[in-house]
C-alpha cells in the first residue's frame, strides 16, 4: 500500500485515542456507585483507565510489532543500526509522562478535596471536638453504651486526653463546619462490627443510614487493626485501637451494600462482613424506632448486670426462676432469715 508514514501514524494515533477513550468509559469493572463522591472517584478511575489503556496498547503493540518486523532473519548475522539515542524523543517521553502524572495528581487532589479529605476537623489540624465519648472507651464492654453517659457528653465536650485522633475523610466543602445529620459510633472487634447510634441509644450489627443525609462514622477498634470498607461508596478507613477516626459521606442510593473488613485481623478476617443498608429517611426513622423499642430493655439489662445496683431478689431472680422458685417464695425465705 502507498500510504505515507505520517498519515499512517496519525491514523493509528486517532484510533488509539478513540479505543482508549471508549474503554475508559465502558470497562464496566466497578460496582455501582452509591454516593456522589463515589461517582467522582469513578470519574477519576475512568480517566486513569483511559491513559493506562493507551499506554498499554502502545507498549504491547510496540513489542509485538518489533518481534515480527525486526526479528532476525535466517542467515543474517549482522548487527542493527548503531543508534545510541535521540534527544528530542527522549525529552518527549520524559516530559509527556511528567505532564500526565501532574494532571492526574491535580485531578486526584480535586476529587479528594470534594470528598472532604481536607476537612480540618478530620485532617488532624484541630482536635475533633464533635467526637462522642462512647466509642473510645478502650476495653469497655461494647454492649453498655449507657444512656446517661451520652447525655452527659454532648457533642461539644472536649476529647479525653488519652484519646488520639487519627485522620480520616471529613465533611465535603459544602458541609464543612456543620455536624453531620447522622452520627454512628463504629467499633471493630474480632470478627464483627458494632454500630452504635448515640442519639437514640441503638446498637446494631448492620449499618442503617438514611439516603441523602450526611453520615459520620466515628471508627475505633477493640483489639487489633480492622478496616471498614464499603466498596459501593469507594471508601475505606482503618479502625485503630486507641484512636477514633472520622469518616463522613452522604449515601444517595437506596439499597443494601456489603461492608467488609479490609485489614488482616486474624483467622476469620474473611468472614468479618456485614451490610450497609441505605434506606429512605422514613424507612430509616421507623427502623430506628423499632430498634429503640427492641433494644432498650436489653440495654437496661446490660446495665443491670452490675450486681452492686441490684436488690437481692432482683439479683437472684434469673437463678431462682431456673430453679423453679417464684419470687414470693424467695421473699419468704429472706424474711424468715432476718
Amino acid at each position: 500500500m502507498n500510504i505515507p508514514n505520517t498519515i499512517l501514524a496519525m491514523l493509528v494515533g486517532i484510533l488509539l485515542t478513540l479505543v482508549s477513550l471508549w474503554y475508559g468509559q465502558n470497562h464496566g469493572l466497578l460496582p455501582v456507585a452509591a454516593s456522589d463522591e463515589a461517582a467522582q472517584v469513578d470519574g477519576l478511575f475512568n480517566t486513569m483507565m483511559t491513559v493506562a489503556t493507551g499506554l498499554f496498547i502502545i507498549v504491547q503493540g510496540t513489542l509485538v510489532i518489533a518481534a515480527i518486523r525486526f526479528r532476525k532473519r535466517k542467515g543474517d548475522n549482522t548487527d542493527g543500526p548503531p543508534v545510541h539515542g535521540n534527544v528530542p524523543l527522549e525529552i518527549l517521553w520524559t516530559a509527556l509522562p511528567a505532564v500526565v502524572v501532574a494532571w492526574i495528581s491535580i485531578y486526584s487532589f480535586e476529587v479528594y478535596n470534594a470528598m472532604g479529605g481536607f476537612d480540618p476537623m478530620a485532617a488532624g489540624d484541630s482536635h475533633a471536638a464533635h467526637m462522642s465519648a462512647s466509642s473510645k472507651m478502650r476495653g469497655a464492654a461494647i454492649a453498655a453504651p449507657l444512656p446517661a453517659a451520652d447525655a452527659e457528653n454532648p457533642p461539644a465536650s472536649a476529647p479525653s486526653p488519652n484519646n488520639l485522633i487519627a485522620v480520616g475523610v471529613g465533611a465535603s466543602p459544602a458541609n464543612r463546619g456543620q455536624n453531620a445529620d447522622v452520627s454512628v459510633n463504629v467499633t471493630g472487634l474480632q470478627y464483627a462490627w458494632i454500630f452504635n447510634y448515640p442519639d437514640s441509644n441503638v446498637s446494631s450489627g448492620e449499618l442503617h443510614l438514611p439516603a441523602g443525609k450526611e453520615a459520620q462514622l466515628n471508627i475505633s477498634a477493640m483489639d487489633v487493626l480492622h478496616a471498614i470498607w464499603i466498596p459501593e461508596l469507594r471508601l475505606k478507613q482503618d479502625a485503630i485501637p486507641g484512636r477514633t477516626v472520622e469518616l463522613r459521606f452522604t449515601p444517595r442510593r437506596v439499597g443494601e451494600y456489603p461492608l467488609r473488613c479490609a485489614e488482616l485481623c486474624g483467622s476469620y478476617h474473611g468472614s468479618m462482613a456485614t451490610k450497609l443498608i441505605v434506606q429512605t429517611p422514613e424507612d430509616y426513622a421507623s427502623w430506628l424506632q423499632s430498634q429503640q423499642v427492641a433494644s432498650n430493655p436489653s440495654l437496661e439489662k446490660a446495665v443491670a448486670v452490675n450486681p452492686g445496683n441490684l436488690s437481692d431478689s432482683d439479683f437472684l431472680a434469673p437463678y431462682t426462676t431456673e430453679m423453679g422458685m417464684n419470687p414470693e417464695t424467695l421473699h419468704q425465705i429472706h424474711h424468715t432469715h432476718h
Binding site: 467522582q40 472517584v41 477519576l44 478511575f45 486513569m48 483507565m49 493506562a52 499506554l55 498499554f56 507498549v59 504491547q60 513489542l63 502524572v101 492526574i104 495528581s105 486526584s108 476529587v111 479528594y112 470528598m115 479529605g117 475523610v169 478496616a227 470498607w229 466498596p231 469507594r234 471508601l235 475505606k236 478507613q237 479490609a262 485489614e263 488482616l264
Partner: peptide
C-alpha cells in the same frame, strides 16, 4: 509486557481517592 501493567496500576493506586477504594 507484564511489568508495564504493574506500573500503570501503580500510578492508579498512588492516587489517594482511588486507593481508598482498592487498598488492601
Amino acid at each position: 509486557s507484564t511489568f508495564v501493567v504493574g506500573g500503570l496500576t501503580g500510578v492508579m493506586v498512588a492516587s489517594v481517592p482511588f486507593d481508598l477504594h482498592v487498598h488492601d
